[in-house]
Design a protein around this nucleic acid. Structure first.
Lengths: 155, 155
DNA sequence: ACAATATTGTTGACTAAGTCAACTAATTAT
DNA sequence: ATAATTAGTTGACTTAGTCAACAATATTGT
């Protein structure tokens, strides 16, 4: 498909802009005693069912040795626990401990709060506009995402 | 301003999604012999006029000691050079050497190529739609950006 | 004018983040 | 059965980033 060069430049400008936004929003995590990676792991374990290390690895696109160490540390901190996966003796299922769940909730509401603050400068109508644009972007880009990662198309 | 909670959730979903996109697009830089930070510095020096370290520091929101070391290394590599700023004896103006400019062009066209590939799966109409959504997002979010950073509003 | 304060950039010393290769044990494919 | 993959761990290492102290200038308040 022929590509419009000025689109390329506009997208790159957006990327620089949005990288900064993401940096701002992550700030609270960077100031907390948990790393961005740990926060994301808590999220992945929270939303997934019977999550295994390899699932997190794929979701986060993170090195398995690094992940292994992070999980070990989080286990030591009492945030997560593992139990043997029922039909694969190599793997564990990872779940949040009550304490880990508590931390997740704390970090999660801090994240909500950050986004909340960002939105609070917009009228409710503009807020909806904004999210409509975002959803449209996801819709436009989602397909080739899956092409690249080799996963099936969404139903 | 009252905030719509489902907007908050949609924005966070967008953020996770777009973080992955940015990761994909940065991949070529990570595979090159230059770091993301160096690539961004080359960009900042390229687009700015009479750039000083503190300008880069502000643009990238990066620690000054870290930046100092990066610049030193890039100078050693022959990518950039410094000359005393005319009206501030503490500061230097930083500029690209011919070689640094060459590297910038190389990295820059690789970045263009990445975005190009992303877009190539869309019809030209969809490409324009996509960038319209992005521009709209920037427009909606740009003001509070400036409020936070204490800079003046754009004219 | 000039003392206090702030800014620009550098350095030392350190911690955190991430990578790479080798390895064990279990699983799947041929 | 055995070869090839996959799940996860470990050792050894490199790269990224932080923090505090510092010297040299600039700016500000009186």
């Amino acid at each position: 498909m022929k590509v419009n060069d000025s689109c390329v430049q506009e997208i790159r400008a957006f990327n620089r802009f949005y990288t900064n936004i993401l940096g701002l929003l992550d700030h609270h995590l960077l100031k907390s005693e948990y790393s961005l990676a740990e926060g994301r792991i808590l999220y992945e374990v929270h939303v997934g069912a019977n999550v295994r290390a390899s699932d997190i690895m794929n979701a986060m696109d993170i090195d398995k040795s690094y992940l292994s160490r992070l999980l070990k540390r989080m286990e030591k901190q009492g945030l997560i626990a593992k139990k043997p996966a029922q039909n694969d003796a190599r793997a564990n299922h990872i779940y949040l401990t009550p304490q880990g769940h508590g931390i997740f909730l704390k970090l999660n509401s801090a994240s909500n709060e950050q986004v909340n603050e960002l939105l609070s400068h917009l009228t409710p109508e503009k807020q909806v506009e904004l999210t409509n644009h975002m959803n449209a972007i996801v819709k436009l880009l989602k397909l080739q995402q899956n092409e690249h990662s080799g996963k099936n198309d969404p139903k």
